Simulated scan of single mutants.
Amino acid sequence: MTNRRTWQTALLWVVALVIVNALWLNVVDQSAPNEINAENQFQTHREIDISSVFGNDDPIPAELTTRFSSTSLDNANLSVAIKRDNLTVVASWSGDLTSEDVVWSGALEPGRYTIETLVEEGVLVEQNLDLQPFASVQPHGHVVLTLLLVALAWGEQGVRALLAKRSPSVNNDRIEKVPFKSTGLQQDDDSMLWEENDSPWRDPLR
């Protein structure tokens, strides 16, 4: 019975480990959208600061999506560039209105970036930068969560053992029950005998 409970407990902890890591994967896949330009709010140069996650300086997955449109122009020259500290070009693109939505995918290290968008007058721009900040610490998260869960499992077993030692022991020895014995004095047999005159049987009256 004890072995069965041990296996059941171990199986529950394994299931908990799988669930926790699956939840972490779901968190890692989440994106943080950042609006760079909108149709009614456009600037040629937009600055954005990308912070490190938990002090980790690994590159963060990023995706820049740009959509161009115009109600007055049939064609126009367009260009987009991502610059680190407004000096180093990380990525660039150039085209015209006949191009489809411009999508750049890559990774950006923590720091300050400038997104430069050059368009002709009359062109509307919708631009968004999606970041996956926790993707840069995905392996670290799996390791930390696994270690925490293992420590919690061992701690739970230790607490149970400690409580079992502190609980009062139950005396399993059976207490011998002494049957009730009458301690009254026994009456003498002579006192229980009927005297002759006290006999309930009497001679009939004549």
Rank of each mutant, 00 (worst) to 15 (best):
T2E: 12
R4M: 13
R5H: 11
T6F: 07
T9E: 10
A10Q: 08
L11Q: 10
V15A: 15
V18D: 07
V18E: 04
I19W: 03
I19L: 11
A22M: 10
W24K: 00
L25D: 11
V27W: 06
S31T: 14
S31L: 04
A32L: 13
N34P: 02
I36M: 03
T44D: 14
E47Q: 14
I48D: 01
D49T: 14
I50R: 02
S51D: 13
S52I: 05
G55T: 03
G55Q: 02
D58R: 12
P61E: 01
A62C: 06
T65H: 10
T65L: 05
S69Q: 01
S70P: 03
S70Q: 06
S72I: 15
N75I: 09
N77T: 15
S79D: 09
R84T: 07
D85R: 07
N86R: 01
A91T: 15
S92Q: 08
S94Q: 15
G95H: 05
E100Q: 12
V102M: 04
G106A: 04
A107W: 01
E109D: 11
G111L: 02
Y113L: 06
T114H: 00
T117F: 07
V119C: 03
E120A: 05
E121W: 03
E121C: 05
E121K: 06
V125N: 01
V125H: 01
F134S: 08
Q138P: 03
P139G: 09
P139M: 00
H140C: 04
H142P: 01
V143C: 00
V143P: 00
V143A: 13
G155D: 02
G155K: 02
G158D: 09
A161Q: 07
A164Q: 08
K165R: 14
K165Y: 09
S167T: 15
S167D: 07
S169Y: 03
V170Y: 10
N171Q: 05
N171K: 08
P179Q: 11
F180M: 01
K181I: 15
G184W: 07
Q186C: 09
D198W: 09
P200Q: 00
